[in-house]
Write a protein that binds this DNA or RNA. Structure first.
Lengths: 196, 196
DNA sequence: GTCTATAACGAGATAGAC
DNA sequence: GTCTATCTCGTTATAGAC
């Protein structure tokens, strides 16, 4: 049981770990197989064994990320929390990403959308749709509870929440300033308080 | 006076025009000198005559863009409009970019921030700061007029507006859906109506 | 100002040994 | 599963002619 390479129970997932961080910090067009190989002290050929090409690596990356994200949402959704609590928890998912000095994976590649392999394009679109669906349910719960108040439809409000959080992250990113995200995120969430 | 190449009164600005569109659609890491040269039917060497390297081209691009944007803001700011009118005009600047099937130049490169030449990094940060400063003044005008109402400070609200519009654009981008931007943008602006 | 030619390098990918 | 070696191509950039 060697201590190095760490977590060699699965090289493929180590590759995904490194690639994921590189995409979230440099973008899909901003990293190469050589970057990943160097960091894991592997050859580029070894990477090609696990993922035939960069397109497949990118796709695997996005699939894993969106599955994890969906699982986190499912867990949060079934928690005994009121709607504002769930929305705060949702915003905290984004905050945690920034705390790791990363951009939202899907926000990053949304910018690069036009240059991506088709499989990746489809996944990023679905990611946003799934987020909006989940948020829409939380908003409905809040309306039922009387814990939130919204101007428009739950669908449009859900879209606004995703857009606002992604934008807060995008702008905070060059400033390397978490407070910048926090303030904008809080404003978005508190704007959903019920009218008195 | 030849009709082709069009606007050869200044090759450099034609280069900037093409490069600008490419950055706004594919990102700074998603286009090359060869792309620009092919489109203008020039050699790559000719591009290097006008801009020594890609870093200098990117910088020139951002300088021109931010100067134009600043000029547009200055014009709008001195217009005899109330604050809500100026905010709507501001949101329309973003809308016009999407209508050309482009992302906000600075939003795009904000995502790529960590991979950019330092000169470009400095300019994108300043772009957001200038936007927030302008918006802060409009919000102050609105408070004086009684035409807007905000929860927090003018500074934080200005930051939220920039973040919300950039985010609405980023998410609308993969969907290629202008309505998606419009709805989120309207929500952001109408949320600033004064409390009755 | 623009060209051709080419250098120098990096990225994505494959072949075949171990 | 991982390696070395190699291939092909694209990208940035320069040299020097016109």
């Amino acid at each position: 049981m060697p201590r190095w390479p760490a977590s060699d129970g699965d090289t493929a997932s180590s590759v995904l770990d490194v690639a994921e961080r590189l995409v979230q910090t440099r973008g899909f067009n901003g990293f190469s197989y050589a970057d990943v190989a160097a960091e894991l002290q592997l050859s580029k050929a070894a990477l090609h064994y696990h993922f035939p090409g960069k397109a497949e690596l990118g796709e695997a990356l996005l699939v894993r990320y969106t599955l994890r994200f969906a699982a986190a949402l499912e867990t949060m959704g079934s928690q005994p929390l009121d709607a504002p609590g769930k929305l705060a928890a949702y915003a905290n998912l984004y905050l945690d990403v920034l705390r790791q000095d990363r951009m939202c994976l899907c926000g990053m590649i949304a910018a690069e959308y036009q240059t991506l392999p088709e499989a990746m394009q489809a996944i990023v679109v679905q990611f946003f749709l799934d987020n909006e669906t989940w948020l829409g349910r939380v908003l409905e719960q809040g309306l039922t509870e009387g814990t939130i108040g919204i101007g428009g439809s739950t669908e449009d409000t859900a879209r606004s929440i995703v857009a606002n959080l992604e934008g807060a992250m995008l702008v905070a990113w060059p400033f390397h300033d978490i407070d910048r995200f926090q303030t904008a995120a809080s404003a978005t969430i508190t704007a959903l308080r019920p009218a008195v």
